[in-house]
Design a protein around this nucleic acid. Sequence first.
DNA 1: ATAAATAGGTTTACATTATAAACCAAATTC
DNA 2: GAATTTGGTTTATAATGTAAACCTATTTAT
Lengths: 98, 98
Amino acid sequence: MPEFAELDPLLHQSLRLAVISVLVSVESADFVYLKERTGATAGNLSVQIDKLQEAGYINVVKDFVGKRPRTNCTITPQGREALAAYVTALQTYISLKS
Amino acid sequence: MPEFAELDPLLHQSLRLAVISVLVSVESADFVYLKERTGATAGNLSVQIDKLQEAGYINVVKDFVGKRPRTNCTITPQGREALAAYVTALQTYISLKS
DNA sequence: ATAAATAGGTTTACATTATAAACCAAATTC
DNA sequence: GAATTTGGTTTATAATGTAAACCTATTTAT
């Protein structure tokens, strides 16, 4: 058993962690909302959403609201588990208080 | 005030965080000891020690024990502060329980 | 009607970073 | 004295992060 646990590289990145952090506390969130909450640029957010989706950590559904496109995101059970595991792993490095 | 704090890129890397994590709880640690505790390869450890030193987060002193070279590391006050700030910043992303 | 601006993204090019393999010098062991 | 071990450093390559540039459709202004 290594003393320091491996940190899931998908979550060990600030924007992806912020996105997951928002999604874990909300039913769903669209691109514009995530952009506002995280303060990210659209390009960066687009790329990181893709990666989270490819990892199976979030679901992405694209539809239209009126005539405007909307990209809607929700966290998956795997996403929740991955976040929990990430927090647990972090605690082998640092002690955090809630 | 952004909702998610910036994460010090120097500490947001597992090996550097592990090194600081060890050093914060120990008077000093040499290369061999850090290599054992972290499980890192020598090359990677050498590079990351350099970066922590350049950042002023650790002090590195090279001497000899008998005829053998020894690289000794200690954390600096800035290193301690940076770690504390990093933990605080992380808590804007996740709420952790000790 | 058409031009300009805005919305909602995606693609890409570039720079930075991380990592292990290769390397090196000195000391030790066979 | 040849081979191995110790204690590292240098480097080559791959992976990653990021913003600028771009794209399509819609709305607003002229």
